[in-house]
Amino acid sequence: MIRQTLQFRQIVRDYSERIGQTARRILGNDQDAEEVLQDVLLKVYRALDEFKGESEMSTWIYRITINTCISFRRKAPRPEVSWDDHSVLEEISGSANDPEELYLQTEARERAVELTALLADKESQAVTLFYLEEMDYKEIGEIMGIPVGSVATILHRGRLHLHLLFLRDEKENLR
């Protein structure tokens, strides 16, 4: 019991911020991220005895985080975004915005967090793990339970869709 408590405390110190960051990126706001963070750590504590070290501790924790975020997203409805994959590229090339200028605005980084949360589940997870945790395709595939080859595809699509969301967001702000 004492060993488990000490191990857990170390996990809290080492992983809390990273779990919170991942959750915020996937869910889009601090409040939900905080709720998920507490939920994840409770699950980690309860399952600590069962962790056999077959995978890295970090992989195990991220898997719990991702699954908890997925459950949370299913419970809390979010605005639905739709796009036709064939017209995405046309929409990008047809936009009047200069790509670089779009991201120079001061609130762009905050908007990136909010907009990433609007991506499809797998896209927001891949984008989050790649950029925030700087994981490679293999690690992301392991956590998300998908083949390595699919990671790149999902990540590329996520980046493309995120840019599209930025363009649409900008257009709405201008109206």
């Binding site: 809390s16 911020e17 919170g20 960051q21 915020r24 990126r25 601090d30 991220a33 963070l37 590229l89 990008i92 090339s93 200069d98 790509p99 670089e100 779009l102 991201y103 762009a108 980084r109 905050e110 990136a112 967090v113 990433t116 984008v127 950029y131 925030l132 980046r159 493309l160 995120l162 840019h163 930025f166």
Partner: peptide, 22 residues
């Protein structure tokens, strides 16, 4: 060219995201 600049810019925005503080 526009696509490349857009992807580079979105990549930059994602890499510079604010840290989460507890």
């Amino acid at each position: 060219d526009k696509f490349a600049r857009a992807m580079k810019a979105v990549d930059g925005a994602l890499r510079e995201q604010p840290r989460y503080q507890i």
